[in-house]
Design a protein around this nucleic acid. Sequence first.
DNA 1: CGGAACATTGAGAGGGATCAATGGACGTGG
DNA 2: CCACGTCCATTGATCCCTCTCAATGTTCCG
Lengths: 252, 252
Amino acid sequence: MANPLQPVAGAALDPATVRVACSNCNLRELCLPVGLSADEMQRLDHLIATRRRVRRGATLFSAGDPFTSLYAVRSGFFKTTVTTADGRDQVTGFQMAGEILGLDGIVQDKHSCSAVALEDAEVCILPFDQLETLSREFSALQHHVHRIMSREIVRDQGVMLLLGSMRAEERVAAFLLNLVQRLHARGFSRSEMILRMTREEIGSYLGMKLETVSRTFSRFQDEGIIEVKQRYVRILAPQALEAIVNQADTQL
Amino acid sequence: MANPLQPVAGAALDPATVRVACSNCNLRELCLPVGLSADEMQRLDHLIATRRRVRRGATLFSAGDPFTSLYAVRSGFFKTTVTTADGRDQVTGFQMAGEILGLDGIVQDKHSCSAVALEDAEVCILPFDQLETLSREFSALQHHVHRIMSREIVRDQGVMLLLGSMRAEERVAAFLLNLVQRLHARGFSRSEMILRMTREEIGSYLGMKLETVSRTFSRFQDEGIIEVKQRYVRILAPQALEAIVNQADTQL
DNA sequence: CGGAACATTGAGAGGGATCAATGGACGTGG
DNA sequence: CCACGTCCATTGATCCCTCTCAATGTTCCG
């Protein structure tokens, strides 16, 4: 097995936009095509014609941009942010391979958040009008689109729970467990990872200041729960993290 | 005009479940049928066959319940809550006439949050498989379903922004403005309202304790921004509330 | 090698939580 | 109609968690 800290999907295809196919994508079990028949998959291949590369630090779309497509993360790592009227912003999520970006844009035909690559990334472009057309033909695809949107709503509820009722320690523990679990589902290690985001971005996502994030990491390390060295994190005692997450509950 | 503190939709139909029609519903401009042709509306009428009454304090659905339908609020007022493993819960939203409940259930075929009526309410039942079938025929309905889900995602982003980066005062100001704006869109006053939820429920939604909510209300009242008397709230200086919401930004 | 970006750590302050008591509003039943 | 109990809201006093301000350390890259 490859180095668990390196992405599974290696091949960096050259052109800025590349013809691709869902049907032989190694993310097809995580991404849009889940549960489609061979025939349906072929039709989907036809729709998802191109990829786009996004360099680290570059923007996939910005709040206010006209909405035309969803994006499936093929490789790399993104953050999404919403911005207040005066320019402060809040990270609303981190997205990795197989996850879908851009669902926020449907309702107003323009994006309401921005997506920025935290490492060199590649996305599959899903023109939304074509996706709607195709999902009127294939109920499996239609239902899957609905499930993806519902999944995002459920995820958001979880973030609200985290922001609304957990303390800093609990938030950080929940964050680490969630991240490593998603990475593990993509073939990475279940205990170690390289964080692609800064302490400030973590803090923004978790509703706390970067110093508090750093201090919490250090405290967990002192307690032997994790090992931290800058962006590298190793989870030594996952059950301790889980206990911290659930401890909020037992306090009542 | 009727008393602005009383619901617009008066008629309380008798049977527990009643045959209804979108085509002559006074909420059709706010609810599912937005933008449908007469023909499409008739088909939708066929789908939305029944209503359900939910008494104050009763549950429309609970986390874990099998998912079968979406619900359009016809009258009354709901809260949705998510619950942690050990039983503490967090309010994730308040829903009023014309708003759709149950989108969280699609992804796992079971609900992940609970919906409780905060006053006697009535909902239209939208069997989801039939809704999918119909929206494969009518692209306008299909797109509207997508817009409703996207709208929920955008709303959730706003709540994350609120919970993650606003202080108590700002949260309460944003909450009051949002509530009165939605009520005004339904024909109620733009300056006064009766809160249907307790201070504790507001606090849960806003990520703060009930005492802090109460204190913040009192402070706003002392400053002449609002008038509060228990559940009754009158906004005296909406621009002051807006300034408080945006002040978070100007502090950086 | 030097600078920029990011991370860590410390000291002090403050906002909101907690604990606790009082006060209203509402509904039920006598 | 009033008395009572329950639920909810208000207000005060105190504490603590997290923020703020500040300095130092580390990594990476030109």
